[in-house]
Design a binder for these strands. Structure first.
Lengths: 226, 226
DNA sequence: TCAAAAGTGTTAAGTTTACACCCATGA
DNA sequence: TCATGGGTGTAAACTTAACACTTTTGA
């Protein structure tokens, strides 16, 4: 009768949509697909997929992201469920959106090319299918809030980075310029952002010190505020 | 072939679970069900239901809340989708949790009684079935954050309230005492929290001024910070 | 008359913001 | 030698936090 109780209800396709953030040429960008499949062939969309029987919703999101990027162990956060009746004109699909932060040096370029995916500046996102524009808006808002109080930004950078790179990342995330001296003062207070003895000479003649984020040290004293 | 593409994927029951907050006797409380039905008869749970074909997920949440409380137009926010494979031992259900803020003077007591639901102090929540404890944890965190920066607390109070009531509400939400003079100073800066000429004599001999939240005035200058 | 809640300002501490110049180096 | 990005400290403005007494009135 328990079986009975559940089976009186309808079932739904449950989709996954991924908002993939990357930090490219000093700008925050999204990895978007120009669909070469139906429905909505030719239009822009997020990378998506469907939850399968043998996986949790979170695992489905990881799988979908991995199908696009070849990446594993990526920082992802759920944005929420999107469940309007006609959100997908191809049929009733309830979709769960996730955002992911990836280091653009590490993804599988071939896979991305096969999916006809492209990096698009966050401020120049074209109209997207269905409710994907709303998903992006929510994802961006959530990511921005989270990035202000938790050290998730490092997922968008290479393991070693300069303070100028870090600052321009946060300027891209918040969409506003930051004061260099105030920024560096705050970084200096976070001992888990460690100066290494390596130097990056690609960005300037003088060379800039390379830093790394020490996750363990952060967990000892998890205070973060940019 | 579009149909084909979708139908290669499995379908799922999509559940709704409601974290119903109320402000009762100076304490934040949750409306919890002691289940008189299977599965998990006798145990404590959130009010739940299933999304139907003819409704959006948000509408399903409103319906489920209304089935329990008789209320309409309640403040609700989505907490997120919960999709672990074995989260519900009775079958694969992907559930979307919502929190609701209700004024405890206005719900339908008979309906609540019929569902065997009870108000439980937020700090004395019994073990809940499935992943409902985690849902409550997330809902509480989200609500607390939101309440600090948006005027959602008024949904938990009667239309007219005293500043002492308002303060004790926020103390319950944040789980910490607030300074009376600092609190009132901040309230005074929010012109959309309007003093009325009515007085509440039930809480003290002297009587306390009754205030109301003016939504329109708030939208003119939507700044809120407690 | 007294117990109980309502109401009311000031000051110190801490945080945030604004701001400008010298340094090192490769071209 | 000079153009370019790297690196550094201080003071004013603002925000937050701490704090105690008087008022009113019903019992």
């Amino acid at each position: 009768m328990m079986k009975n109780y559940y089976s009186a209800n309808p079932q739904f396709y449950v989709g996954i949509d991924c908002i993939v953030f990357g930090f490219l040429k000093g700008e925050l960008s999204l990895l978007l697909l120009q669909r070469n499949f139906e429905p909505a062939r030719g239009e822009w969309s997020l990378m998506g997929g469907f939850v399968q029987e043998d996986e949790s919703v979170d695992d489905a999101a990881k799988r979908v992201l991995s199908e696009l990027t070849g990446l594993d162990k990526v920082y992802m956060e759920q944005v929420g469920a999107f469940g309007n009746i006609h959100r997908d004109p191809g049929g009733r699909v309830i979709s769960v959106a996730y955002y992911a932060l990836i280091n653009i040096d590490e993804y599988d370029h071939d896979l991305v090319r096969q999916h006809n995916a492209h990096w698009v500046n966050i401020n120049e996102v074209p109209p997207l299918i269905f409710d994907h524009t709303e998903m992006v808006r929510r994802a961006r808002m959530l990511m921005c809030q989270k990035a202000a109080t938790e050290p998730i930004g490092f997922n968008l950078l290479p393991r070693l980075f300069t303070l100028t790179q870090l600052q321009s990342l946060y300027e891209a995330i918040f969409g506003e310029p930051l004061d260099k001296r105030n920024f560096r003062k705050r970084v200096a207070e976070m001992n888990y952002i460690e100066k290494t003895d390596k130097v990056d000479k690609t960005g300037s003649k003088r060379g800039a010190a390379l830093y790394q984020f020490n996750e363990c040290a952060y967990r000892q004293a998890p205070k973060f505020k940019i």
